[in-house]
Design a protein around this nucleic acid. Structure first.
Lengths: 213, 213
DNA sequence: ACCAATCTTTAGGTGTGACTAAATCTTCGC
DNA sequence: GCGAAGATTTAGTCACACCTAAAGATTGGT
């Protein structure tokens, strides 16, 4: 149930409704399973369902989703900074833990970390009241040549990609200058303090940057 | 399932078989639920069942129970020493977490703690291979007057008792001398470095001590 | 405007782990 | 050694969350 809310939150984050199929694909479940759960969640008042159209979260549903997101991101941050996990292998562990931890434990972890606002991937950590930072970013693939930016957020969960990025020094907080943008979905070349990197277009699209002024 | 194994382990720790009713009482379940689960666990080869007699764990079952016990005790120790939980309120949290943590996480917690051999209550933490320390102890209620002992283990999970004991300085590792043993289930008076304490018979029976030689 | 492809829901089934009620086994007092 | 009390198991349900198969709704192309 908690996984459904989280998924629907992500799917509707930018205003749309979530379709049964989208949810089923995201959770790797059969469509009828999703149909059934949607009914239960709608009865619980956590979402609105327009049959054959899609679902949106209610205020309660969004609140519950944000609570899970907070748990997940605090746990990830904790595992990385206190227990030596790497950012490419915390996801599954956090996915299981988020359903088992108490509110108290989450708050203690947050305190131990100094109440961080972002997790290791740069994703904002919702506050206990559901408020969440909204950082405006641009994909690296859309940054013009010669502009200097800072990586704010890495929008992939694929372990191989994350490992490569960590290796290359392309992590949230890294400052870089775009040196070259090849056309036709070509690679982006960026300059870091420690040297140059060539990043494929796919990956560059997942490096969300803030533009330094 | 994991809870059954742990419970049966505790009930059979000192050689006996565990009855359906004992298990049901310990887990707060109805007897038929236990009967059903016993059948499943027996089919899985985790325990021997003599119908109408009781159950004992097989080697596999004991191994699985010890793995859970290791998880539980490492988690409790971690919560207390790294996250500021007190020993009277870690149990429930650990009870939920032990089913969600990965082997990897448990080992990382253990490492972060310097591979402790005992949890905050003085209970031994099984090694990853299932080996477990066997400390021979005597209840404080059975220690003769004038003998000096060290509290090794506190055999209660009742939060009120644990809080009182922590307050009184009666925790594992504390050295004390028995000053007085009142008859007819009367209280025990003990001398600590920091003063005297009077402990009721019930509680004294749960303070397991090693006798200093 | 219809029909075919696609999406969604309904219908019906499975495994897990709980329950109550009832049947059966064991034990203990006399 | 019998009968009653208590322990245990069997029988039959239930809720949950998943599944497949099939029916029904929507949509886009002609």
């Amino acid at each position: 149930m908690e996984d459904y809310l989280k998924t629907i939150y992500h799917l509707t984050e930018h205003g749309e409704v979530a379709s049964t199929t989208d949810i089923a694909d995201a959770l790797d479940l059969a469509a009828p399973s999703v149909s059934g759960m949607i009914k239960r969640l709608a009865e619980a008042g956590l979402l609105e369902h327009l049959p054959y159209k899609g679902v949106t979260l209610t205020r309660d549903g969004r609140q519950a989703a944000l609570r899970m997101l907070r748990r997940h991101r605090i746990i990830e941050t904790y595992l990385v900074s206190q227990l030596g996990f790497t950012w490419d292998n915390v996801h599954d562990e956090a996915e299981k833990l988020e359903h088992a931890v108490s509110e108290d434990l989450v708050e203690r972890m947050s305190r131990a970390l100094g109440h961080p606002l972002f997790d290791p991937h740069g994703d904002p950590i919702p506050a206990a009241d559901g408020r969440i930072a909204d950082v405006s970013t641009t994909p690296l693939s859309d940054i013009p040549v010669d502009e200097q930016v800072t990586i704010a957020r890495v929008d992939t969960g694929v372990p191989d990609r994350l490992r490569w990025l960590a290796e290359a020094g392309l992590v949230p907080g890294t400052r870089l200058t775009v040196r070259d943008q090849q056309p036709f979905n070509g690679p982006v070349t960026v300059g870091l303090d420690i040297g140059q990197r060539v990043v494929g277009r796919d990956l560059a699209a997942q490096l969300l940057c803030t533009r330094d002024r």
